[in-house]
């Protein structure tokens, strides 16, 4: 459903993404891992239309969406939950969720307000509260819920575990599993490689702006190169 072919992006003279190729099939949960500064977020932002590619192409279903504006990409059903949540702080929780519907653009919703509240009951409790007053974990849930309201055909998440307490991270990832079992396709960028590989079915590794390795998450978890560079905790445990 999503095919990136040789995608490249620069910020001025710095090439953040040099050559990224990957594909996502319906029903998959794909993880994209790699060190800080490998270009993972830049890659997501290029897919989402926040950055303009200098080379390569992005195909989404039967459309070439290379170089589309961010709002067009969102309305096509490719929705990003941005790094750092980016909830609209002065607006209430419910207003944030209702704004999620802007991406529908006539497409059929696959999540209603009630579904989001069922997935994250805390949001129902806080629905009249300003989004800026929520905890980091609650904001992450709100950001995911807001994207769900836009009827995603593919949900991409940028570092959903960033800055969250482990117990909250577990809650968020359980929700992602629930969503995946309900048939949602997910592309996940995550620095926490062991968590990302444990929750995905397939993964890509990105280094220096290139997608360098790809494979089923289960086998990547046992790949010595991955263990050495990304899973130090597993290496030290016998």
């Amino acid at each position: 459903m999503l095919i990136l072919d040789g995608l490249a992006t620069s910020y001025g003279r710095i090439q953040a993404v040099r050559h990224a190729s990957l594909h996502v099939e319906p029903g998959e949960l794909i993880a994209l891992i790699g060190p800080n500064g490998a270009g993972k977020s830049s890659l997501l932002n290029t897919i989402s239309g926040l950055l303009k590619p200098v080379a390569g192409s992005v195909r989404f279903f039967d459309q070439d969406i290379t170089g589309w504006r961010a709002d067009q990409v969102a309305r096509a059903g490719l929705l990003q939950v941005p790094e750092g949540r980016q909830v609209l702080g002065p607006l209430t929780v419910e207003e944030n969720l209702l704004l999620g519907r802007q991406a529908l653009a006539g497409r059929k919703p696959n999540h209603q307000l009630a579904d989001v509240y069922a997935l994250f009951p805390i949001l129902r409790e806080r629905h009249r509260q300003k989004a800026g007053t929520l905890s980091g974990g609650e904001q992450q849930m709100l950001a995911i819920g807001r994207a769900l309201m836009g009827g995603p055909r593919l949900l991409i998440l940028d570092e959903p575990s960033l800055g969250l307490a482990p117990i909250i991270v577990n809650q968020v990832f359980e929700a992602l599993q629930t969503l995946r079992h309900s048939g949602l396709t997910i592309l996940l960028v995550e620095q926490n490689a062991s968590l990302a590989l444990a929750s995905s079915n397939r993964a890509y590794v990105m280094e220096h702006g290139r997608t360098v390795l790809e494979g089923p998450s289960e086998s990547l978890r046992h790949d010595p190169r991955i263990i050495r560079h990304y899973l130090p905790s597993i290496e030290t445990t016998p």
Partner: peptide, 24 residues
């Protein structure tokens, strides 16, 4: 209204709004 929510969203962040499908 939805219109008002769009305006307030763009007032807060043009970037986030565009990720939600709003054209600033």
């Amino acid at each position: 209204t939805d219109f008002g929510r769009r305006v307030r969203a763009v007032a807060i962040s043009e970037r986030t709004s565009s990720l939600l499908g709003i054209r600033p």
